[in-house]
Design a protein around this nucleic acid. Structure first.
Lengths: 330, 330
DNA sequence: AGCAGCATGGAAAACGTTCTCCGGAAACTT
DNA sequence: AAGTTTCCGGAGAACGTTTTCCATGCTGCT
């Protein structure tokens, strides 16, 4: 029942360990006859290479760490799924860490992964500012790709959706359907998604209402905030509620329904991300879909291109185009 | 910039590799003076133990594989979160696999993890029957705990919610609130959750309506099926729709609203699992909450108790009590 | 004084790979 | 025919730990 090793196969096939390794790894040409006997012996004994030993010798574990703020955030599971598929397809395994939205935990997890010799890190930073130190430290040691959120300039490669373009899509759509008194329901804080979406709204709102720029209310990325925001904003009767993500929009929708408002008749509501919940809301949510598959593919590409950690080449920043998904809410 | 190893620390502190290992691992008493210098040197050089080498030598990677059917199933993220926390707290790392609901992929992922020498596997099987072979094979090699779903008797340790108790909770509640013409909207197939919930409904439905047992409709665990089921069942005007999970219930709720039905006035709707969506539905969903934290804790406990793989001790099956969460839908 | 026992430290063997040498034979080139 | 290249195979070092075994010096007991 003990594990079958190269040595066993070598013994059984009457040649050396080196030869067995070569035929199995295909790392150097080897005689046809020898190859056949070796393969037969390996098959017969049920040999399975030991990845740990291989990793020790070749200094590559074939493992990448995926560190994210909160797996329970409904935007992440589909991203995790795509990443897992992309990575497994190249024979790499995924170590997962959930940081509970806490930068301290995040730093600890990053450290743990580094100790486990991950080949690379995929990281969605908890906080633009408070994650920076740990991220920079890690980026100096292994290839690291930032996902979905930034973490200060020049810290690491990053790939994210083009938030400005997404917000522009929303604004164009609302302008085209005649909305003129928009309100933005966003998130405070320095997270890049929050900042960029807010800025893009401000930049584009003038197109809707050249005289008075739309009002802005800031809370966090939660359903509760969506509900609360409606209580604050509804009295002024906006004709569009542009929410910084789908959770906020879901909360807003819920509260508007309780108040008896007509969506989309009186007021349009839009989200951002297109989480699964968006299609289920009532009315179904018009939102901006993040290209999750491409995000994952691009991240994987950046990773494999990533040379050994610590190289200070120029950082790449990839921005992917989002797509507007028009449903019933606006 | 090269990695600092035990050898470097030994050199710097003027003693042998063995001694350094001993003071750092605390594996054998060592002179107070020596210990101090060694620790100082390690600190100064920034020594970080290499887990790969350690794993090779000690035949334990401190890694457990978590294999699940579909991370996008909204019930799983919170489970993954709890498991990740429980495991990281004991210093183990989590390798994640998403099987895309496909037993073949599942077998491949299990094999990949075994090759990576995981210490143990945590597994939510895709299918009661078609997962069995791969699961049994894996269970023979490492400690393996089945989560949430079973996989045939005697295959491995398992921990899951008590589905029968949960369904009984629902039925009691509906009986107490005067519902008499229930319908069960369940899932076909052999997945243990589907089977157990269906069986429990059948066993308990008599209490609601002693003469005619409630009707049963079977589809799958999806929102779409929930919608479709309403179209099939609503004409017969049941006064309660007991859904086998929250997704089905969400679909049912959506369709009932479209049809103008009064929930919970005319008809109560209940779910199962208490996924985040449940509280957001309109009306908020009455459902059965799975004790996710305890599930994870129990699984972790079973794992650490698990001796080396392949031991054929008696299998343990842990069933945890769920809790009824009464909201607005029934 | 002699010897068991203990506390401490080092040398070196393992763990299972990969990979660099090296040697010999066969195949070319001149 | 002699040199040169190519091809194939083996011995063994290395990767960074942990752990076994041994050597040393000290304590304390008879």
């Amino acid at each position: 029942m003990a594990e079958v090793t190269l040595k066993d196969v070598a013994l059984a096939s009457g040649c050396s360990i080196a030869t067995v390794s070569r035929v199995l790894a295909g790392t150097r040409p080897v005689g046809a006859e020898t190859a056949r006997t070796v393969r037969a012996a390996a098959e017969r004994l049920g040999y399975r290479p030991n990845h740990v030993a291989r990793a020790l010798r070749s200094r590559s574990t074939g493992t990448v760490g995926l560190v994210l703020p909160q797996i329970t955030n409904p935007f992440f599971p589909s991203l995790v799924r795509e990443l897992e598929h992309a990575l497994h397809a190249e024979g790499r395994a995924v170590l997962l860490a959930d940081c509970d939205d806490d930068p301290v935990t995040e730093a600890a997890r990053i450290g743990a992964f580094l100790g486990r010799q991950v080949d690379a890190l995929l990281l969605i930073p908890v906080d633009e500012r408070r994650s920076r130190e740990a991220v920079a430290g890690a980026a100096a040691r292994v290839p690291l790709v930032l996902l979905d959120r930034g973490c200060g300039p020049g810290v690491a490669d990053s790939v994210a959706v083009d938030n400005a373009a997404g917000m522009a899509l929303v604004l164009d759509h609302l302008a085209a359907t005649g909305r003129r008194r928009p309100c933005f329901v966003g998130a405070a804080g320095t997270a890049s998604a929050a900042v960029e979406r807010r800025a893009a709204y401000e930049a584009g709102a003038a197109a809707l209402d050249p005289e008075a720029p739309g009002r802005i209310a800031l809370g966090d990325f939660s359903v509760e905030w969506g509900r609360a925001a409606v209580d604050r904003l509804w009295p002024s009767r906006p004709d569009a509620l542009i929410c910084a993500n789908d959770l906020i929009a879901a909360g807003a929708l819920q509260r508007l329904r309780q108040l008896g408002a007509d969506v989309p008749g009186e007021v349009a509501v839009t989200g951002f991300d297109d989480i699964p919940l968006a299609g289920l809301a009532d009315p179904a949510l018009t939102t901006v879909r993040q290209p999750v598959g491409e995000l994952a593919a691009e991240a994987a590409r950046l990773l494999s291109r990533g040379t050994a950690g610590g190289e200070q080449g120029p950082r790449h920043t990839v921005r992917l185009a989002p797509r507007l998904v028009v449903r019933d809410s606006g």
